[in-house]
Amino acid sequence: MLLIACPYCGERPEIEFAYGGEAHIARPADPSAMSDEEWAAFLYARTNPKGTHAERWRHTNGCGRFFNAVRDTVTDFFVATYKTGEPRPDLTPRSVV
């Protein structure tokens, strides 16, 4: 079970959270101006990196806030968690002692 640091509450077990998919995919301001292809890309196209991945989590059974996290998909270790609206931090995965 992952240990996740909610930016509002601190470290809590994964059981308190819900995963929310890839982060930093903003809903277009004017969807009607988008082609079908652009809209499909917004709806469905997601990265699937081996390595760091910026993703959304919600502290559902806690403060209820959505926030973002950078997680290393190889090790499952979190590099950072940060508030929605903040830019993705430029970080490399932390090594394990």
Partner: peptide, 13 residues
């Protein structure tokens, strides 16, 4: 409620 919170918190804060 989760969907509403999602849009309210992350798209239209």
């Amino acid at each position: 409620l989760n969907m509403m919170e999602d849009y309210l918190q992350t798209e239209w804060p």
